[in-house]
C-alpha cells in the first residue's frame, strides 16, 4: 500500500500527531449533526487520499459502505420513533426519521473507520512506541519484540509448511486429516519459536537488560511551534465540543428532524474551525511550498 512519507505534518511532536489521529475520530463520534458529519467525512476522505492515494481510499470506502446500510437498516427496523411514516407492517410503523437517523449513524461509523485507516500513516509505529514507552517502557519493549517476531514467525510458518509439505499436501485427505496436520504444524511452530526465544532472552541479558533503570533512545522535543499547534488543537477541540453540546451544533431527529437553537453564525464559525483542525495535514503541506525566505529571521 502506498503511503505518503515525509510530510511536513509529521515534523510535529508525536503527542500532537496522536491528539490529531485520535481526536478526529473522537469528534466524529460525538455528533450526528448532518453538517458536522459531512465535514468530518469529507476531511477523513481527503486525508486518507492525501496519505494513501485516491484508488486505495475509494476502494476502502466502497468496501465499508455495506456497514452503513446494515446500521441504517437495524435502526429502521428496531426504532419506531418519528412522525413521518414510510410504511407499515402489521402494527409496526417504519418512519423516515428513523431511517435518516440510521443513515446518519451509519455515516458516523463509516467516517470513524475511514479516519482509523489513516491512523498508522499519521502516527508511525515508531512514534506510537515512543509515546507508549514514555510511561510503559517494558510494555513498549514487549510490543516492539512482538512486531519483530511477526515477520519471523511468518517465515517459520512457511518453512514448516515447506518442510512438512511432503506429508500433508495431499488434497485427497479429509478435513480431519488436514486438521491433524495443521495442529502438528502449529506445535512445531510453538516449539521452534520457544527454543529460539531462549537465545533472544540470552541476548537481552548479555546486553545488560535489567541492570539499570532503562533510558530511551527516542526523544522528541516540544518546540515553540509545537506548543502553538497544541494550543490551536485545544481551541479547535473545545470550540467544536461547545458547539456540539451546548449550542448551535445540536440536531434532533425525533420526533421530527430539526436543528436546535439555530444560531447560524455560531454554527458557521465552529464549522470553519472544525474544517481548519481536520485539514491540518493538508494545509501544512501546502504551506511548505511558500516557505522560501520566511525562514530567515532577523534577531530582535
Amino acid at each position: 500500500m502506498y503511503t505518503r512519507k515525509h510530510t511536513i505534518f509529521e515534523t510535529l511532536h508525536p503527542a500532537l500527531l496522536l491528539a490529531y489521529a485520535s481526536g478526529a475520530p473522537i469528534l466524529a463520534m460525538l455528533t450526528n449533526h448532518p453538517l458536522f458529519l459531512a465535514i468530518s467525512f469529507l476531511a477523513a476522505f481527503c486525508v486518507q487520499t492525501f496519505y494513501s492515494g485516491i484508488r486505495e481510499t475509494a476502494k476502502n470506502t466502497l468496501f465499508m459502505l455495506p456497514f452503513v446500510l446494515v446500521v441504517a437498516l437495524i435502526n429502521l427496523f428496531t426504532n419506531q420513533r418519528g412522525m413521518t411514516i414510510l410504511f407499515r407492517a402489521g402494527h409496526y410503523a417504519y418512519t423516515c426519521e428513523s431511517l435518516c437517523y440510521g443513515i446518519a449513524n451509519g455515516m458516523m461509523l463509516l467516517t470513524v473507520l475511514v479516519w482509523f485507516r489513516s491512523f498508522s500513516a499519521i502516527l508511525s509505529n515508531e512514534k506510537f512506541l515512543y509515546l507508549f514507552g514514555r510511561h510503559l517502557p517494558a510494555t513498549a519493549l514487549l510490543l516492539s519484540m512482538i512486531l519483530k517476531l511477526f515477520p519471523e514467525t511468518r517465515h517459520k510458518i512457511q518453512s514448516i509448511q515447506f518442510a512438512q509439505g511432503g506429508f500433508s499436501n495431499n488434497p485427497k485427505c479429509g478435513i480431519k486429516e488436514r486438521l491433524k496436520h495443521s495442529m502438528r504444524q502449529i506445535s512445531s511452530l510453538l516449539e521452534w519459536s520457544m527454543e529460539d526465544s531462549i537465545e533472544t532472552a540470552d541476548s537481552m541479558k548479555a546486553r545488560a537488560y535489567g541492570k539499570a533503570e532503562r533510558t530511551s533512545y527516542r526523544s522528541y522535543k516540544m518546540t515553540a511551534k509545537d506548543r502553538r499547534m497544541a494550543a490551536f488543537f485545544a481551541i479547535a477541540f473545545l470550540a467544536v465540543c461547545y458547539s456540539i453540546f451546548g449550542g448551535s451544533g445540536r440536531y434532533t431527529y425525533f420526533p421530527v428532524m430539526r436543528m436546535d437553537h439555530g444560531n447560524i453564525l455560531e454554527l458557521t464559525v465552529s464549522a470553519v474551525i472544525y474544517l481548519g483542525f481536520l485539514f491540518t495535514p493538508l494545509w501544512m503541506e501546502l504551506q511548505l511550498q511558500k516557505g522560501g525566505m520566511r525562514t530567515w529571521e532577523s534577531s530582535k
Binding site: S144, D196, S203, G210, K211, T215
Partner: peptide, 22 residues
C-alpha cells in the same frame, strides 16, 4: 535472527545503551 530483540535497526543499536541507563 534470534539475538535481535527489537523491530528496527536503529532501536536495536540503542537497546544495550538504553539498558545501562545512558
Amino acid at each position: 535472527d534470534n539475538q535481535i530483540v527489537t523491530d528496527t535497526v536503529r532501536h536495536e543499536l540503542a537497546f544495550g545503551l538504553e539498558n545501562i541507563g545512558m
